[in-house]
Amino acid sequence: MSGLSATDGELVARARKGDVDAFRQLYERHVGGVYALLRSSLRDRDLVEDIVQTAFIRAWDRLARLRDGDAFKVWIRQTARRAMIDEIRKRRLREADSLDENEESGHAPADPAAAPPDALTRSEMAERVRGAVAELPAHQREVVTLHYLDGMEVKSVAQVLEVPLGTVLSRLARARNALKRKLGGFMDDWTEGGA
């Protein structure tokens, strides 16, 4: 079987035997989601990158503990989130409540409907949507990032965050309502435009 079509479980099995290339494929598959999850909570990009590296190294060291290799997607995000919490405790940093509009976050300023969608490039529109997400409270950003942006099932989101499913659904419902208010008609135009 080619490496590209291998399942996470197969790659985990190879990585457990010391196959770094298999682990690299796991990294390439999941690093974007891990990074997005951490960025939804932390504004310091360098710190996020450090924790991403710590998480993958920790995962390599602990692969033997992962009973179901196909659960790697949830496990690596959970590992990263725990590493983030450890790091925050260690550095006595407080989890950011919001990505301030004045921060160097790279997110667009908050005014998603300021310009009509047809006047914006796709990347500009994406930045506006991400900017609206960035304005949500931290616990809502996490669930939106995992569920909508990273495409995880709500059950898996609950596993990553180690909270009940109902809590995830509640946070998602509140976040969706807030985003609908923020994005308004912009949302309709986007989807009708075939984005």
Partner: peptide
């Protein structure tokens, strides 16, 4: 709802640099 479609089509913000070299060095 369309919000879900919008958010999914946007996806997460991309990383600005590849971290693999640092990870591989430790591995």
């Amino acid at each position: 709802d369309r919000l879900a479609g919008l958010l999914r089509s946007v996806g997460p913000a991309p990383m600005e640099r590849d971290l693999w070299d640092g990870i591989q060095g430790q591995l």
